[in-house]
Design a binder for these strands. Structure first.
Lengths: 98, 98
DNA sequence: ATTAGTACCTTGCGATACAAGGTATTCAAA
DNA sequence: TTTGAATACCTTGTATCGCAAGGTACTAAT
């Protein structure tokens, strides 16, 4: 059932703090949301392509450089939409639960 | 983002009251969840095949007979699982929102 | 008998997530 | 200097889900 929630969770995560892939996987795992590498890379690329995310390269102390993603202004607007959708879904479920 | 929520919503809907397809579409629409016929029929068939739903034919005053679906005992157990998943997703989102 | 309305269902398409595998960079040890 | 381990990037193939469109069958009214 978590399908479809992933994009929302990632945008929530990247709205204040820039992260690279392993950060994201780790942070989501701490929030009990499991996500695979092969899922994440295409999703990040798509959000970048759509202008919702931007990235910058940063050196690492150990290993190759990393792509640090952050939400753009356009992404913030899209996130506001998703917040509204999330509220609506909660309303729907609560209504059906009665 | 409502993707994946549909199965849960339908099982919530059918846990107490038997409905046929147009009932379900109508009731979900009232809860602000739009679902298409072509989505619903395969989903109901799958839940039936998996033993989570059962149906019985009922005559209609106008038109051909209808399949009225209701949640089975096995479906009730599956629904308890989905309720737990739903709680977890809410926890995840709330945690990421901080 | 024909038509309109209702209810059932199927097929083809696009999007999403997973599993598996592949490329490239860095650093340390042989 | 070269080899290998670790890290980080990405792609491909598969399954599932939801939608759009189209199709079949039964009922009732004209």
């Amino acid at each position: 059932m978590r399908k479809g929630m992933l994009e929302y969770c990632i945008m929530l995560l990247l709205r204040h703090q820039a992260c690279y892939t392993n950060d994201i996987i780790q942070r989501l795992r701490e929030a009990e949301m499991i996500v695979m590498e092969g899922t994440l890379y295409p999703l990040l690329s798509r959000l970048k392509r759509d202008g919702l995310l931007a990235y910058e390269w940063r050196e690492s102390t150990q290993g190759p450089p990393r792509k640090y993603y952050l939400l753009t202004d356009e992404g913030q607007q899209a996130l506001a939409q998703l917040n509204a959708s999330w509220e609506e879904i909660q309303r729907t479920v609560n209504l059906l639960k009665q």
